[in-house]
């Protein structure tokens, strides 16, 4: 089983690596981080924080773009191009296919995170900012946010087109960072239906703000280890649930 999952995961990784989109996004991300050098002279003593914040935000933004753009088509493309026939005609179970695709995508994102983080630390060195290891906590939490987002993209990718999948995943990402607003909306709205929908979405959609500790890291605020551990556990449970749904949907499909 592991051999087959690894085969599919590595092939997904190889496909993305040989696609220019991934390389382009990583290069642009590093260029955006390097643009902090331009800001440095006009930053009035805040340069260090701006460079750190810009770098960490660029890592998150571009990795989210990769998860949405590349992740949103990984299953659909196999169906559209009919390469799925060649895989599922072999002793590959459908859940192995979905897990393999997901792992392949996480491998792509893991390597992207490492490369972008390396680029970020290089920018820190070049701009004379102390490259503190503590910044890596923010990158780690971004990794778990990406785990959820990739599972969302894979789930959509099992039954809608890549464009629809990208749009839906982006909507989940956007609302996932505004779940507190949903709760407030439900609290202040007099209409029961709005209250219900607001609270339903609040509980069903992932609370992605839990993974944003960039502000604390950049401003040297104390980190809450318990909150971080709980967020990681939340990411694992949420991802697992989404993949189960994706497998359920995929298992029932005819090709």
């Amino acid at each position: 089983m592991l051999n087959r999952i690894w085969g599919i995961a590595f092939n997904t990784f190889r496909e993305s690596v040989r696609d220019r989109v991934l390389a382009a996004l990583i290069v642009i991300a590093i260029l955006v981080m390097a643009s902090a050098k331009v800001i440095q002279p006009v930053a009035l003593g805040e340069a260090e924080k701006i460079i750190k914040d810009l770098g960490l935000s660029a890592i998150t933004l571009f990795c989210v773009l990769i998860a949405i753009l590349v992740g949103g088509r990984i299953v659909y493309r196999e169906v559209e191009k009919r390469t799925i026939y060649l895989l599922l005609a072999r002793p590959v179970r459908r859940y192995e296919f979905i897990i393999g695709k997901y792992c392949g995508m996480m491998l792509v994102l893991g390597v992207s995170l490492v490369l972008m983080t390396a680029g970020f630390y290089l920018v820190l060195l070049l701009t004379g900012v102390k490259p503190e290891p503590r910044l890596l906590w923010a990158v780690l939490m971004t990794g778990f946010e990406l785990a959820i987002l990739t599972a969302v993209a894979v789930l959509f990718s099992t039954f809608v087109t890549p464009i629809a999948s990208a749009v839906f995943t982006f909507v989940v990402y956007f609302i996932g960072h505004s779940t507190q607003l949903l709760r407030q909306l439900a609290a202040i709205s007099p209409a029961p239906i709005v209250k219900f929908i607001g609270m339903f979405l609040y509980y069903v959609l992932p609370n992605l703000n839990n993974f944003n500790i960039r502000g604390d890291v950049v401003h040297n605020a104390p980190l809450n280890p318990l909150a971080m551990v709980l967020s990681i556990a939340y990411a694992l449970v949420y991802t697992f649930t989404l993949l189960l749904i994706a497998i359920f949907v995929f298992n029932r499909r005819d090709f």
């Binding site: 092939n11 190889r14 496909e15 040989r18 696609d19 191009k81 009919r82 390469t83 026939y85 060649l86 005609a89």
Partner: peptide, 9 residues
């Protein structure tokens, strides 16, 4: 399969 399409990369 009919008119097979493989991983072109």
């Amino acid at each position: 399969p009919e008119s097979p399409y493989f991983y072109e990369y």
